[in-house]
């Protein structure tokens, strides 16, 4: 096959995969949440309520797309798109199977960190442009939370980089052929997992949109398709972080018998379900608890892990 055609095909497949995964998550999350909370959840539209996604889409497309007169128009419109684009960009460096990756970048891991740090803008600017005090409070919380947890996320990943000797995600997966990094880098995995939750501001860490205190936080003023974009951005983030955990700590496409793509997708699916299970089971911490936990627990753990890993790598020569 022509290499250019093959590359385009990979781009289309990865893009469509990410988008349909995030659409499917709308249904999956509601069904799983209700399963764990002894309810039925959406089960009326189509088999198992699967067509609920289509119904939601139609509803969100035809809702009034309202921009408040007091908002900063341009920034208000651009902000949701910024969030979605920055998350989607990270999928470009994700190795799905040997040879199947959009861009085999030699600084792929840093690219992922850079894009996740740009994702803050979507939320911070969305909250600011709304010109609403609750939205602004949500945006401020989101900025501080994501900025802090990015630090621990990056530090935790450096242990993986030391062991595999590369920032290239394909090589990191290849380095886990004998032993997954979730064994040798266990503290890093725990820190990355928690930081991942905070980065996607999902339930235990969803203080930026805590509905009991801030109405809906940074997206209070958003409606229709722009609100939908924030939603899609969140589900894309969940998919991305799950896929990154699999790639970095759980051997990526490695596994016996089944083809590599199946292993990768299966492992990612398990972690997505884990995300939803945590949402169903954990309460929200207070904001100062969240920050104190990050700086007083996660940072020392990540640094210690880095120190020990460095010593081990040095001793082995």
């Amino acid at each position: 096959m022509n290499p250019i055609v093959k590359q385009l095909l990979i781009i289309v497949v990865v893009f469509a995969g990410a988008m349909s995964a995030s659409a499917g998550l709308i249904w999956l999350e509601r069904r799983l949440l209700s399963l764990w909370q002894d309810r039925y959840g959406p089960n009326r539209v189509g088999p198992f309520g699967l067509m609920q996604v289509v119904a939601d889409m139609i509803k969100i497309f035809f809702k009034e797309d309202w921009i408040p007169p007091f908002a900063d128009r341009v920034v208000f419109v651009v902000a949701p798109a910024l969030l979605v684009v920055s998350v989607l960009m990270s999928f470009a460096v994700l190795p799905v199977a040997p040879g199947i990756v959009v861009s085999d970048l030699n600084v792929g891991l840093l690219f992922f960190l850079g894009m996740s740090s740009l994702g803050v803008y979507g939320i911070a600017l969305g909250g600011w442009a709304s010109n609403n005090k609750y939205a602004l409070l949500g945006a401020i919380r989101a900025t501080a939370q994501m900025l802090s947890y990015e630090v621990f996320m990056g530090l935790a990943l450096m242990g993986v980089v030391m062991l595999s000797g590369s920032f290239n995600l394909g090589r990191i997966v290849a380095a886990q052929e004998k032993m997954w990094f979730c064994v040798t880098q266990f503290p890093a995995m725990v820190v990355f997992l928690i930081a991942g939750f905070a980065e996607t501001h999902r339930m235990p860490f969803d203080l930026p949109e805590a509905e009991s205190e801030l109405i809906a936080g940074f997206h209070t003023e958003y409606s229709g398709i722009k609100f939908g974009l924030f939603f899609v951005g969140e589900y894309l983030g969940v998919t991305l972080i799950s896929a990154m955990i699999v790639t970095l700590f759980f051997g990526g496409w490695h596994g016996p018998l089944l083809p590599p793509v199946v292993w990768f997708l299966g492992k990612t699916f398990v972690f997505i379900c884990g995300f939803i299970l945590l949402r169903a089971s954990l309460p929200r911490p207070r904001y100062d608890q969240l920050m104190a936990f990050g700086w007083k627990v996660l940072l020392p753990v990540a640094l210690l892990n880095l120190l020990v890993t460095g010593a081990v790598v040095l001793a082995r020569g």
Partner: peptide
């Protein structure tokens, strides 16, 4: 210089400028 490019995005665009935006928002 891919490494310098990545650091430019992470440190300048992703961290320092966020703090600027943060302060101006306040």
């Amino acid at each position: 210089a891919p490494f310098a490019a990545a650091l430019e995005v992470i440190v300048y665009a992703g961290a320092i400028m966020v703090l600027f935006v943060f302060v101006v928002m306040m």
